[in-house]
Computed example of a mutant assay.
Amino acid sequence: MNTLDWSTNELAITGLLLFFAIAFLQSGIDKCLDFKGNLAWLKGHFKDSPLASMVPLLLAVLTLTELVAGLFSAVGAVSELFLDLEGWSYWAGLFNILALLMLFFGQRLAKDYEGAKTIAIYMVPAILLLYILP
């Protein structure tokens, strides 16, 4: 790919990747910087759900998944525009969807239907990203 000849598709993919890089890196870094605060809030959020006893483990898994999704998205965005490295955008898309499904599942089990609705909105661009990838 010539870096001066970006297609509309490459720019759309890059925009979606940057969207998820920002969302997941911010969320994952926040969870790392305030793990105890997030854990305390989530323990209360899930106290009446089947996940109550697993919150610390699930928070660690979610944090790692979000960081991977965000990192892959950032590398994928740079790759789309400048490097033409195969696979980063695809793997970013898969990890984005995985992270969103984890969040959606948790919100549904916690009976936080408004929160689940918000996660569902994020799923639209995540699926679109995989759909428009070459």
Rank of each mutant, 00 (worst) to 15 (best):
Pro125Glu: 05
Ile119Met: 06
Gly106Leu: 05
Asn2Pro: 08
Leu59Glu: 07
Ser27Val: 00
Ala23Gln: 08
Ser89Trp: 11
Lys117Cys: 13
Tyr113Asn: 15
Ser7Lys: 15
Leu39Gln: 10
Lys43Met: 15
Trp91Phe: 14
Trp41Glu: 13
Ala52Gln: 02
Asp5Ser: 15
Ala60Tyr: 10
Ser79Lys: 11
Leu62Phe: 12
Leu25Lys: 02
Ala21Ile: 01
Ala21Asp: 06
Ala110Cys: 00
Leu25Asn: 11
Leu103Asn: 00
Thr65Gly: 07
Trp88Asp: 07
Phe24Gln: 10
Leu51Gly: 04
Thr14Met: 13
Asp5Pro: 04
Gly70Thr: 09
Trp6Arg: 15
Glu114Asp: 12
Leu128Ser: 02
Asn2Gln: 12
Ile29Met: 05
Leu128Lys: 00
Leu4Gly: 14
Trp6Ile: 14
Ala69Asn: 02
Val55Glu: 01
Gly37Lys: 07
Gly28Asn: 01
Val55Trp: 06
Arg108Ala: 09
Val61Asn: 04
Met123Trp: 04
Leu62Met: 14
Leu4Trp: 12
Tyr131Asn: 03
Gly15Arg: 08
Pro56Lys: 11
Ser49Leu: 04
Ile119Tyr: 10
Leu128Gln: 00
Tyr131Gly: 01
Gly76Cys: 03
Met54Arg: 15
Gly44Gln: 11
Leu83Gly: 09
Leu18Pro: 01
Gly70Pro: 08
Ala23Asp: 08
Glu10His: 14
Tyr131His: 06
Leu133Ala: 00
Pro50Phe: 09
Gly37Pro: 01
Gly44Leu: 08
Phe19Gly: 02
Leu128Asp: 00
Asp5Ala: 15
Leu17His: 04
Phe20Gly: 11
Trp88Gly: 00
Leu42Ser: 08
Ser53Trp: 05
Ser89Ile: 08
Lys36Thr: 04
Ser73Cys: 02
Leu11Glu: 04
Gly44Arg: 11
Glu114Pro: 14
Phe19Leu: 13
Leu109Ile: 00
Trp41Gly: 06
Gly93Phe: 06
Leu133Arg: 07
Cys32Val: 12
Gly93Met: 02
Val78Ile: 14
Tyr113Lys: 03
Gln107Pro: 05
Thr118Ala: 12
Leu16Glu: 01
Leu17Gly: 11
Asn38Ser: 12
Leu130Gly: 05
Val55Met: 06
Gly106Phe: 01
Ala116Thr: 05
Gly87Glu: 06
Trp41Phe: 15
Ile119Ser: 03
Val75Cys: 10
Lys111Phe: 02
Thr63Asp: 03
Thr8Gln: 13
Gly15Lys: 05
Ala60Thr: 07
Asn38Ala: 07
Leu130Tyr: 03
Gly15His: 07
Asn2Ser: 15
Gly76Tyr: 14
Asn9Ala: 13
Leu39Glu: 12
Ile127Asn: 05
Ala12Glu: 13
Trp6Cys: 08
Ser49Cys: 01
Trp6Thr: 10
Leu11Ile: 14
Ser73Glu: 02
Asp30Met: 09
Ile132Val: 12
Leu94Gly: 09
Thr118Ile: 08
Val55Arg: 02
Thr14Val: 10
Leu18Met: 07
Phe82Asn: 11
Ala99Pro: 04
Phe35Lys: 03
Ile127Ser: 05
Trp88Cys: 02
Ala120Ser: 05
Leu129Ala: 01
Phe105Thr: 07
Pro50Leu: 15
Pro50Cys: 14
Lys43Cys: 12
Ser27Gly: 13
Lys47Phe: 08
Pro56Ser: 06
Lys47Ile: 11
Trp41Asn: 13
Val124Tyr: 03
Ile119Leu: 07
Ala40Cys: 05
Val68Pro: 00
Asn96Arg: 07
Thr8Ser: 12
Leu58Ser: 08
